[in-house]
């Protein structure tokens, strides 16, 4: 691989190092400021009463209030939205991992009939336009009696999370040398015991990263989650449409609910940050 480094650029004349770090740091700081600006604005708004929001532009809450948050934490129709979302997202993440792990192992270790086609087919399931597929989904889950359950949403989200999980895990698994499998077999480990006690700990990072992506895509998806539920498993994103009432938009409440949807995800990324930094090997591509 090192042959790709051009030899022609060798010039041993000493060059003074331009402080490249400064421009780079400035770029990062500006990027983060632009990134955080809309979020800052939403947090700012969530701490104001509607009177102040509509009264004029203020850069920090002059009439600081936590009423918007209090409403959400005391009204079951609000906080149950978060609980419902967390339940089906959690179920989906666990199911995606359990289903994808053996398949990713198969893709990374074996040639089998139709492997490449199967892989592309899995990927195509992310591409179905939701608008028309919603009605068949609704009919399907109603016919099997799962409509308005957490399980229905978790199962439906497998459609796009399982292919992604297989894709990411397969990359990590391909980075583990095959000799380890063979040595374990020689040492008399059965396959399940080898897989659980030796192989899985080796790809811890991969499992962390995969769990993060599954959590993320399930947490942010709205159309399917809203279509497959009505009351008992209604996700928070659907509850948020309630803030449009006869008296106009309740902007403060909407902003507070929005702020609260960021927190679970931020916690998850905090826990997997080191695994992400370790990198994906992504062997297939």
């Amino acid at each position: 691989m090192s042959k790709t480094i051009p030899r022609a650029t060798v010039r041993s004349a000493p060059r003074t190092q331009v402080p490249r770090g400064l421009g780079r740091r400035l770029f990062v700081v500006v990027y983060f400021m632009l990134l955080l600006l809309p979020i800052y604005w939403m947090i700012n708004m969530s701490l104001k009463p509607n009177r102040e929001i509509l009264g004029g532009l203020t850069f920090y809450p002059h009439e600081l209030t936590f009423d918007n948050y209090r409403t959400i934490f005391t009204d079951p129709t609000w906080y149950m939205g978060y609980v419902n979302s967390l339940i089906y997202v959690g179920m989906n993440t666990v199911m995606s991992l359990l289903i994808a792990l053996p398949a990713a192992y198969a893709f990374s270790r074996f040639h089998f009939l139709g492997a490449n086609h199967l892989f592309f087919w899995l990927l195509t399931n992310r591409m179905a336009p939701a608008a028309v597929f919603l009605l068949p989904f609704f009919q399907l889950y109603q016919n099997i009696g799962l409509y308005d359950t957490h399980l229905a949403v978790a199962l439906a989200h497998l459609l796009f999370n399982v292919p992604l999980a297989v894709w990411i895990l397969e990359g990590f698994m391909s980075g583990v040398p095959r000799e380890i499998d063979e040595t374990a077999a020689v040492d008399g480990y059965s396959f399940p015991r080898f897989f659980l006690t030796i192989f899985l700990p080796l790809i811890r990072s991969g499992i962390g990263v995969t769990a993060f992506f599954c959590f993320m895509f399930s947490w942010v998806e709205l159309l399917l989650a809203r279509t497959l539920t009505s009351v008992a498993a209604k996700p928070i994103a659907a509850t948020m449409t309630r803030t449009v009432s006869a008296s106009g938009m309740d902007w403060g409440l909407l902003a507070a609910a929005g702020v609260l949807t960021i927190i679970p995800g931020a916690l998850v990324i905090y826990f997997v940050r080191n695994h992400i930094a370790k990198g994906f090997a992504l062997g297939r591509v």
């Binding site: 809309p38 929005g258 949807t261 995800g265 931020a266």
Partner: peptide
């Protein structure tokens, strides 16, 4: 940096719309 960068990804899509509608 990683936690901050990932923030927009973790916001439900209709909330993203709402944020920009307001902004």
């Amino acid at each position: 940096s990683l936690v901050l960068v990932a923030l927009p990804l973790l916001i439900p899509w209709n909330v993203v719309g709402t944020i920009w509608q307001i902004f």
